[in-house]
């Protein structure tokens, strides 16, 4: 019990620090990929603290509620991860976090925010099946939904689930809002939806959304690491490698359109995951 408390505390404090640093490195590497010098590594933290110090303006009173809910459920998902709980429920809690943001964005009358929210819903429509199938693949291999059992499993999951891993990488691009799938909101400002989902959030609210992104990143990288859980450091290295891959993909793709994304994700993402899982069934 005490162990769990300590692990939770470390996760809650440590995840945003590492996540923020990774975002800083991301921005630096992205800049280098574009032949620029790039911002300092600590830039995300500067942004974060600056946003905390801004005047708190809002469009309605309870926007902040949705942002908090977005944050809390991301933390809850992270805790489920570090406490090695049910993977499937983790996905649902994680989805709750996203839906909170969607509802928050829709709760204002701003057209861009609303359209961004609609697109985010479409993204969920695309990637949610893949995430659930991934959990299912994990169950097929380990016979349990608990993350603990993945860590206890004698072999890395990647051997049995290579295509599921690929599908997850695909979804990762959507979840990290990287090009070609940065429809709902984009890390750089030149988008038809201004800032989409986050258009109407400012100051502290935006800071908390950034913070949640850091948690999200850690959860997603943690999930990647699970595929290579034996030994864990290999998993972490591969997760970082996957993150670098995302940066490269971000820089070699145009933004596609979301109808295309839904089709492609259901075809490629769900397809590959399913092929892998059916393979597991056929395997004696």
């Amino acid at each position: 019990m005490i162990d769990n408390l300590i692990i939770s505390l470390i996760a809650i404090v440590g995840a945003p620090i590492i996540g923020g640093l990774l975002f800083g490195i991301d921005r630096r590497i992205t800049a280098r990929l574009q032949n620029r010098f790039g911002p300092p590594i600590l830039q995300p933290f500067y942004d974060f603290f600056k946003l905390l110090g801004k005047e708190s303006i809002a469009v309605n009173q309870i926007q902040m509620m949705y942002v908090l809910s977005h944050l809390f459920f991301a933390i809850a998902a992270l805790l489920m991860l570090v406490l090695r709980q049910d993977l499937l429920m983790l996905m649902f809690i994680f989805a709750f976090s996203t839906i909170s943001l969607i509802i928050g964005a829709m709760s204002v009358r701003s057209p861009y925010s609303k359209i961004g929210a609609q697109r985010e819903i479409m993204q969920m429509l695309a990637y949610e099946p893949v995430l659930l199938l991934m959990v299912f693949g994990v169950y097929k291999v380990t016979g349990s939904f608990m993350i603990q059992s993945i860590l206890d499993y004698p072999m890395p999951l990647i051997y049995s689930l290579p295509l599921v891993f690929f599908a997850f990488l695909y979804v990762l691009t959507i979840k990290l809002r990287k090009s070609p799938f940065d429809f709902s909101t984009s890390h750089h400002g030149h988008q038809e939806l201004i800032k989409g989902l986050t258009t109407e959030f400012s100051g502290t609210q935006l800071a908390l959304i950034e913070l949640t992104h850091w948690y999200d990143l850690m959860i997603l990288l943690g999930l990647i690491a699970l595929f290579f859980a034996q030994p864990l450091w290999v998993g972490i290295l591969i997760a970082l490698g996957a993150y670098f891959l995302e940066m490269v993909i971000d820089n070699i793709c145009a933004r596609v359109t979301w109808p295309w994304m839904i089709k492609a994700t259901w075809l490629i993402g769900v397809g590959t995951a399913l092929v892998n899982i059916i393979g597991l069934y056929l395997r004696p």
Binding site: I99, I102, I103, M106, A117, I121, M124, L125, P129
Partner: peptide, 13 residues
């Protein structure tokens, strides 16, 4: 279940 997310969340919003 992915579809249910769509119609509920847009309505809630």
């Amino acid at each position: 279940s992915a579809c249910t997310v769509v119609f509920w969340s847009k309505w809630i919003g």
